[in-house]
Design a protein around this nucleic acid. Structure first.
Lengths: 338, 338
DNA sequence: CTGAAAGCGCTTACAG
DNA sequence: CTGAAAGCGCTTACAG
């Protein structure tokens, strides 16, 4: 019942541990081990149900065949989906992934990065929180492989894969405009992440293209409060009451959209009649809402797959990462909310 | 920039590696190391930013201070919430947790268990899939620490923490009955997990207590198909068409509830008017639906906390786990769906 | 009070 | 073609 080691196999097979190691790592031909020994070692290993001790292997080789994935919040559909894609893709390439959520807390984010580093992951896939530049720079400096997701820092030459936020927001806003809505409220948060800014820019430029002037009063940046959703709902209710002439609203991510739905319900607005609604990011809640909410959906499969491929190729072939941002197009899905 | 080791510190401090090890593991007094040496070692370690190599530590001690958490589906709110609780609780006690989802696939579940074992986790928290008895028995036999969540196998003496499914279903059904609904449809799945059976029993006994006879035609056990939700919706539509006199429906978990909402929408049933609805497990979709759906909510915090505590106590103190099922009460939350 | 040494389970030059 | 040995970075009896 005890775990058996390479040494046990060696003695049973009457060969040295080196021979066993070579055979078990498929280096038999390379090392020109005789067929006879190969057979006997393989047989004994199989019979004994030998499993290499990964801890020992990693300690020796310096590789763990794992990648660390840090995301915002695993209970958020967008991140859960992307985590799933990444795990699957990594598995295909022989890697395990450890995932951790930051809950948007920079302190926790730093801890997690430390944890992952302590666990000797071979590479990192990270959706950064605010104020994480220093940590990421440090990782890059000690030559760790890092791919960023969903957002980047303009002042770091990291590789980042994300949806084209500007274009997505531009398209969503344009569509609303084309449908005849003129007074479009915009709901963002105060987290100061670059992709939110780009979404705001997309909105602004879409207005400009239609010669509609940007109205500060129609834009709010909700103070993000971890967990305390009720407060956010109330603030949003206030906001809507301050601009009663808004005939449409654009929520800049799915958390905001969900909070927004609650606020609109509280106000007893009829979505699609009193106000048109669209949100960045798709979510089950949006698809199931009555009426179903239109969204800008992210190419999750695409983003996840490429992140893993770039990272692992870099780990295995020592290739350096591109070090720049790669944009993927989102897709506007029109449902019943306008 | 290179990682520094205990040996580096020893030579800088002019002491042996043993001394360094003792100091850094707070065994200085125990080993009666002189204060002077303690100071110098601590100082040098701090300055160098020394971080022990956990791989080496684990290889040597046989402990990794990690626990493996295997759940059904991380994108399912119930499991995501419980994962969060467990991670937090474990951290308090100095443990990391690795989480993996099975997607209800027994093959994948076995792989994951193997993965976790390979990673040398100190203990397991598992929501088992079908056909996992053998694996769990094996784990128990080689003396691994295991806590089951949400469901158990009647033929194994494992420790399991779960909601009182019978009571939750009994209460929900009774409430419906008390409100005057007499023809209550029941929607389960065909996964044959014990907790679903208990929920069915709760339903059946609540009917019996009110002298209402159990009608086979009102009960369906949807064939579970990973991913292919559309099919399940269609089957459910068929089911509802086959029992047009149902004035209420009880979905036995949140996935079923979500599929059910889609089916009812397709049928254009007015929830709360044409049919009363309640579901086991709470979910954002239920709270946000129009009208909001009543649920039997699970004591997630409670379940997660106790699972971690029992497990870690068993790991550290070598205490054996209770080896039986611990039931926690759920709570009926009444909203607008009846 | 402290150090030298063995050993956790592996891999990989090196020598023959 | 194959084995003996060093070493990855730790911990922990053991000896003094």
């Amino acid at each position: 019942m005890k775990k058996i080691s390479i040494k046990d196999i060696a003695s049973k097979a009457g060969v040295s541990v080196s021979t066993v190691s070579f055979v078990l790592n498929n280096k038999a031909k390379e090392m020109r081990i005789s067929d006879e020994k190969v057979q006997i070692v393989k047989k004994i290993a199989a019979e004994a149900g030998y499993k290499p001790n990964l801890l020992a292997k990693s300690l020796r080789t310096g590789k763990t065949k794992t990648i660390g994935l840090m995301i915002d919040d695993i209970s958020n559909n967008f991140f859960a989906s992307i985590a799933k894609v990444i795990e699957l893709e990594a598995k295909k390439l022989g890697y395990k992934v450890f995932y951790c959520s930051t809950e948007n807390d920079p302190v926790r984010a730093k801890e997690i990065l430390q944890l992952l580093e302590d666990a000797h992951v071979d590479g990192f896939i990270i959706t950064p929180t605010e104020k994480l530049q220093t940590e990421i720079k440090r990782l890059l400096q000690i030559n760790k492989k890092v791919v960023l997701l969903d957002r980047y820092f303009p002042d770091i030459n990291a590789t980042c894969i994300m949806v084209d936020s500007y274009k997505g927001a531009y398209d969503a806003t344009s569509l609303l405009l084309k449908k005849g809505y003129k007074t479009i409220a915009l709901v963002s948060n105060d987290l100061h992440m670059i992709q939110m800014q780009q979404r705001e820019n997309g909105y602004r430029d879409a207005l400009k293209a239609m010669k509609i002037k940007y109205d500060q009063k129609l834009v709010t940046r909700l103070h993000y409060i971890g967990g305390e959703e009720e407060d956010m709902v109330d603030r949003l209710v206030d906001f809507f009451e301050r601009c009663p002439d808004a005939d449409a609203v654009f929520f800049l991510n799915n958390s905001l959209g969900i909070v927004g739905l609650k606020a609109l319900r509280k106000l007893e607005y009829k979505i699609g009649k009193d106000i048109a609604v669209i949100s960045f990011d798709d979510n089950l809640v949006f698809a199931l809402n009555t009426p179903a909410i239109s969204v800008v959906s992210q190419p999750i499969q695409d983003i996840g797959t490429q992140a893993v491929e770039l990272l692992i190729r870099s780990i295995e072939e020592g290739k350096s990462l591109p070090g720049k941002t790669i944009l993927k197009s989102g897709k506007v899905i029109v449902r019943e909310s306008f």
